[in-house]
Design a protein around this nucleic acid. Structure first.
Lengths: 225, 225
DNA sequence: TGTAATGTTTACCAATCGGTCAAATTATCC
DNA sequence: GGATAATTTGACCGATTGGTAAACATTACA
């Protein structure tokens, strides 16, 4: 009989994928991560408390800590789950497609994500804004590699004259920032637009403006065409 | 003799402008706000502690609380001090100027601020990102009024055909987001650009790209000119 | 149906939080 | 130089923080 220490939480098996997880584990972890997304995205890591998350999740704090042993573990699980989805639009960027259409649909997809998944956007915004202490590796690794790859695609387009000659990295940054702005700075956008534009129509207006801006701004030079 | 309560902190007279402040008050409050900017901009309001600020400021916590009676008071003083400066570039937007040149210099000024005052940018970004609980009034009041005014200027430009017909509010949002991105998401920008572009040259590259994007994107339609 | 594993809860811990207090120190002004 | 006001500090407070211990309840499975 081994009485050393307390019973191990079930999240330990998570690492060893072969051990199967119970139905309750699936449900509760889902519940917790959903609540954690709510809280972390609204207050950042340091500003969030386990008690808040527990309350939103509708369970006791020790129960929550049974599934995720630390606050960091919860945050990490959340980041891991969300990061892949979040980069999906950029991954869909197609080298063989029509540049104008690719950029247009990338903008549209990013705007849809800002509208439909603002919490995910704010989760990353909070993290990056505060120095990305927990996702530095992801930024310098997978993210950079993906961007490098797509930047090469854009560079090829500029060289063949399909779009105007420009820095592909800053082009990507500008699409990120303009679209995510509508999730991350939502309250400011609402405040400035006022009640008369409070509806979801602002996303349509934003899409129209941004497509105009980027398509117009990237169209090959008149002098060369 | 009046022994009721402790002696009042000197920051009380701050409200009544007629009572003059001592040299020490000026210096210490400056020191504190400088430290507070460091800490608040890096961790947001909830994520920051008075102890952190006191340590950065190089004084004891009670001493700090002698000048600002609460954490909120410090944050408020900081917001008040920074907000005016922060909106200066937009205020400089001139209705009588040349549209192309006005937009170009607005972008440049905003980029310079992102480069030279990133903490101020992050202070607001943190605040807005977390729902703007402390600056809601400023957003709905002074900010909205200023933007409304400048949006009217831009609208006049679109109507007279000096720039392409577009939504002036979303134009302003897009300039804000693209420029502030280089302050707020600095670590991400650095991570993606990699060490080879780690120098301050990225601001020059960004300026070049953004001017190209906005000037190109806003140039009046070929079909109409 | 019994029992072992899994899941949940109450009570608690040390550390840190924002903030106070009174005493000690320093600056100011007559 | 002495009185007075302004400044600074160490000790402390109750509340909240992340996290633990162990008893208790439930579930899964033989």
């Amino acid at each position: 009989m081994n009485f050393k220490g307390k019973r191990q939480p079930v999240t330990i098996p998570r690492a060893a994928k072969t051990l199967r997880r119970t139905r309750i584990q699936e449900e509760k972890e889902e519940q917790i991560l959903e609540a954690a997304l709510d809280v972390f995205s609204a207050s950042g890591f340091r500003g969030s408390t386990i008690d808040q998350i527990a309350e939103v999740a509708g369970m006791s704090k020790p129960n929550l800590l049974y599934y995720f042993r630390t606050k960091e573990a919860m945050h990490r699980a959340l980041i891991d789950r969300v990061l892949y989805t979040w980069l999906e639009p950029l991954r869909a960027f197609d080298a063989d497609g029509n540049p104008e259409e690719e950029i247009r649909s990338y903008i549209r997809r990013k705007l849809e994500m800002a509208r439909d998944f603002p919490r995910e956007s704010r989760l990353f915004a909070n993290e990056v804004l505060q120095g990305a202490p927990h996702i530095e590796d992801e930024l310098k690794g997978p993210l950079k590699e993906l961007v490098d790859e797509k930047a090469e695609v854009i560079r090829a387009w500029t060289k063949s004259g399909k779009i105007v000659k420009c820095d592909p990295y800053h082009l990507i940054f500008s699409i990120w920032s303009t679209t995510q702005h509508y999730a991350d700075f939502d309250v400011q956008v609402r405040a400035v637009l006022g009640q008369e534009h409070a509806g979801e129509g602002r996303f349509e207006d934003a899409a129209r403006f941004l497509e105009q801006l980027f398509i117009g701004g990237l169209r090959p030079d008149r002098s060369e065409s």
